[in-house]
């Protein structure tokens, strides 16, 4: 009888089974934390190696002159190709987002959302094959063909991102504008799009940052550009940064490696700054609209 009564003075610490469960729980917590540390560490290691090896190549000459000393034409070519791609993809993406949020019912929106998701999932190398078959085969390589390829990559990102912010526009604004008898198109173009503009722009910047590093479509569309002369003409093959890094990395020549590290540093810093900035802006504008 007396053995069953616990000692009232014993400290309240878990024992036996409970203790085992708590230890196991703590261990899983630690391993989750370690997983996060691993991911951040990989990012830091990659970025650090690029900075460490690329910084020595970096100089004003490197950025602004043509081959063999610099990468000016590649940077210009990438800017032209990505810029044209954005000009193609942004209006289409916003229009699709408008269709999804303002016009389509559930039945029409379903297939289009699925299309966007599938388009987002298509491997970029397939988009390269497509561009080759459609625009390059029997003709010649061109920066424009590359832009179309990148536009296909950007389109679902822009459309999905714009749709998200358009959905955040309060319905009271739409109702108020309807109640005043404002025509639909006027309220869409005059009120709804402007109030979501910040989000649309950041979605576009994120898409551009993603597309700027895409190599696969450009191997097919614009890999024969001449890196020793500056060109703005999108109807001929333009030299560009990703393809150049790719070819230099395949060549296995140490000088080429140094140049490729330098280009990687320039490209990675442009992309990381653009996407970090856009993300910060997006978070802010979402908070503003939601609050």
């Amino acid at each position: 009888m007396s053995a069953g009564i616990p000692d009232p003075a014993a400290p309240l610490t878990p024992t036996g089974n409970l203790r085992r469960r708590q230890v196991f729980s703590k261990m899983t917590e630690y391993s989750a934390t370690i997983a996060a540390v691993i991911a951040v560490a990989v990012l830091v290691i990659v970025v650090f190696s690029v900075i460490q090896r690329g910084a020595s190549a970096l100089s004003l000459d490197f950025v602004f002159t043509a081959a063999p000393t610099g990468i000016g034409p590649e940077l210009l070519g990438t800017a032209v190709i990505v810029g044209l791609g954005m000009v193609i993809a942004m209006p289409l993406g916003v229009l699709i987002a408008l269709f999804l949020t303002e016009y389509a019912g559930n039945r029409a929106a379903g297939p289009i959302r699925l299309t966007l998701d599938l388009m987002n999932g298509i491997p970029s190398i397939i988009i390269g094959l497509f561009i080759f078959g459609l625009l390059v085969d029997h003709k010649q390589q061109s920066g424009l063909a590359g832009s179309v390829g990148l536009a296909i990559i950007m389109l679902p990102l822009i459309a999905r991102g714009s749709q998200e912010v358009l959905l955040l526009v309060p319905s009271s604004i739409r109702e108020a504008s309807d109640a005043l008898g404002v025509a639909r198109w006027r309220s869409v173009l005059g009120i709804i799009v402007p109030s979501a503009l910040g989000g649309i722009v950041t979605a576009t910047v994120l898409a551009v940052a993603r597309a700027a590093g895409e190599t696969a479509p450009l191997i097919f569309a614009s890999s024969l550009g001449d890196p020793s002369k500056f060109s703005l003409n999108p109807l001929e093959a333009l030299p560009n940064v990703p393809v150049r890094i790719f070819t230099l990395s395949e060549e296995g020549n140490p000088e080429g490696f140094a140049q490729a590290w330098g280009m990687s540093l320039v490209l990675i810093s442009l992309i990381l700054f653009a996407s970090l900035g856009a993300r910060a802006l997006l978070a802010r504008s979402k908070r503003k609209m939601a609050g």
Partner: peptide, 24 residues
């Protein structure tokens, strides 16, 4: 801080990741 960093990992262009893969 960690959330955007993890997403940054996806923003590294594949060609750079591959280049790093070969040499490092």
């Amino acid at each position: 801080i960690v959330s955007p960093l993890v997403e940054m990992l996806a923003a590294i262009p594949s060609v750079i990741l591959g280049f790093w893969g070969v040499l490092v």
